[in-house]
Amino acid sequence: MIEGCPPFSTRQEKEVPKVYVANERPPFRAPPKCYAYGLRELIEECWSEEPFKRPTFRQIITRLDYIYNQLPHKRHWKECFCW
């Protein structure tokens, strides 16, 4: 959702299941400045293979609230996702 396109959209459709089985994650395609501060890190923490390293839903909501409140609300997020 954050990239504005399906995960692994650059891969052939038949390759996608193999990528998931190999525990690969979709790459971040946009330049880092296009993500709100802390958002990429939160996503990567949620992807951890070790369940105890993943944030709880309560922690996720708290961090998303913080990230949202830090956004300059005049910024247009779609500016970063014109591929």
Rank of each mutant, 00 (worst) to 15 (best):
R29T: 00
L64R: 07
C46N: 05
I61H: 06
R58A: 02
E50S: 12
I67G: 08
Y20L: 14
C80H: 04
E79D: 15
E79Y: 13
Q12P: 01
P26V: 10
P6L: 13
P17T: 15
V19E: 05
C82S: 06
I61F: 13
A36K: 11
R11I: 14
P55R: 03
P7S: 07
M1W: 00
P27I: 08
P55C: 00
K33H: 10
L42F: 04
F28Y: 04
K74P: 07
G38N: 08
S48Q: 08
P72V: 13
V19N: 04
F81I: 11
K33A: 09
W83K: 07
Q12D: 11
R63E: 07
I43M: 14
W83E: 05
Y68W: 12
Q59M: 03
I67A: 10
Y37C: 06
R58C: 00
K14W: 05
P17K: 15
F52R: 02
E45D: 11
R29W: 02
K74R: 10
E44N: 12
E41P: 12
Y35A: 00
I61P: 05
R58I: 00
W47Y: 08
P31L: 10
R58Q: 00
E15D: 15
C5L: 07
A22S: 15
E41Q: 14
F81V: 11
I2W: 01
E45N: 09
V16D: 03
P51R: 09
C80S: 06
C5V: 04
R40Q: 05
R54Y: 01
R40A: 02
K33P: 01
V19H: 10
I2Y: 05
P6M: 12
